[in-house]
Design a protein around this nucleic acid. Structure first.
Lengths: 251, 251
DNA sequence: ATCTGATGTTATAATGTTATAACAATGATT
DNA sequence: AATCATTGTTATAACATTATAACATCAGAT
């Protein structure tokens, strides 16, 4: 496969990144499909006219973002695509991606106790003046921002949660680790929405063609000691990164 | 002028280059016009959220490519654009730009002695089997490819010319430095043309709106010892970078 | 004459990108 | 068992990008 070099040396974009994008393009256009063997590293060097360092950096990124797997002595192979998320599971998408070995990154944008707006107060069924822990978190996967979560949690239940814990764990894990808290029900509502400027910016959709996102609300009901409490999440999904699949088993 | 930062930190493009492009955009959209004072370096730092090094690197590029002038103690100003070239002068455009202090870069694509095609042989009035020196050169200015020159020169006059000499000198200088060669006449013919794939590619016009270029032929007649010889040049100009002006003084 | 604001210069440092090279370790083939 | 192809690792080096900081120099205004 003698390909013309796709590295544009006039561009200010690093060569390894151009190569990274070039290979993703091949995968997304089904020129390379699941299980296919990529050209060997040295072959890629020749095809693209770059050094092995550069090729390996591109492959490293592809591996971290779950596009390929590399096997010493054998070669580099296209990984199956993970691009649907099940809504039926309560377990989080972060856990789902982690189980698949795909690197996710986490950025905690907000983590503080506040008095919530009226809308949220109603959903959580709070006493007046009661504080919530408000967390805003941005998740990166597949090499870009995947979604934003806003969590509205009764502060008297969660207390402070360190930013480090938030960065390193899914909300499912954090919540189920709270002693004396038992999840009893969850409800998820998905709808398309037009994002506001902040969400647009965070998901890097400014200037993008797709201006409609997935807006997912999750309401967890739980027993805490003798009372019934509610946890509320809002999530905003990058539509270019993944689609949702609805599955249901009829008995 | 509190501007939102236009630096995209997710992009792999260097910040200084994003800033460079951002300012060019302002100039091309007449948000900044000839003679306008740019914000001071430290102001730009704040507006774009980058260090002075970064701002200065952007300004350096803008200066080299002729978009701005900087004056110590006063500030940075939008320069008038040199976007017309006189056709009346025999002297080259490279020299013209250099005199204005605008950086030009040079890439020699071909430099070899060959037997010319029939068309060229007729123009140069060559003996059958006589070789020419064929040079293809790409000139960059204003931060992009400006034009391509194809030079067809009788080999017995020029001999070999090193690629380094071609890179560092205008053809006018090279030719007039040949001993015993005296220019006696020049004729230039300008016409619009549709470029072939190679020219399109070299001038970075693939995908561009403007698909018509300037095609300029130059025929120099000269005395060389006792004989009359002809030098022939073809040039292909990027229409987005510069326009030609026709001027003539009537006596 | 002095101060202020602007660009010019220099030094230090951390990190990112790219190339070249040699060698190690593994899987598959002969 | 030996060899070959392939990915993994390490070292060295050059250059690019970005930040922080201090000081020099010049133009214009008070």
């Amino acid at each position: 496969m003698i390909e013309a070099s796709k590295i544009n040396r006039n561009l200010k974009v690093p060569y390894y990144y151009q190569l990274y994008e070039s290979i993703i393009e091949n995968i997304e256009n089904n020129i390379l499909v699941e299980g296919d063997k990529l050209a060997a590293e040295m072959e890629l060097c020749e095809q693209y006219g770059v050094s092995r360092i550069t090729v390996r950096q591109a492959l490293k990124e592809l591996e971290l973002n779950g596009f390929i797997v590399r096997e010493r002595g054998r070669g580099t192979f296209v990984r199956r695509k993970i691009e649907t998320h099940s809504l039926q599971k309560v377990s989080s998408i972060v856990d789902e991606l982690r189980r698949e070995g795909i690197k996710t990154e986490n950025k905690i944008l907000v983590n503080k106790a506040v008095i919530p707006e009226e809308r949220v107060k109603k959903i959580l069924n709070l006493n007046s003046g009661e504080q919530i822990l408000f967390v805003k978190r941005l998740i990166f996967a597949y090499g870009g921002p995947l979604y934003i979560t806003k969590a509205y949690l009764p502060y008297r239940i969660t207390g402070k949660i360190s930013t480090r814990v938030l960065r390193e764990n899914s909300f499912t894990n954090i919540i189920t680790d709270i002693p004396a808290l038992k999840l009893i029900h969850s409800k998820r509502i998905l709808e398309p929405a037009v994002p506001d400027a902040e969400i647009l910016e965070l998901l890097c959709l400014r200037g993008s063609a797709k201006k409609v996102i997935h807006y997912l609300q999750t309401i967890w009901t739980a027993r805490y000691a003798q009372e019934t409490v509610t946890l509320y999440f809002e999530e905003y999904f990058n539509p270019t990164k993944g689609k949702f699949v609805f599955e249901k088993n009829y008995e």
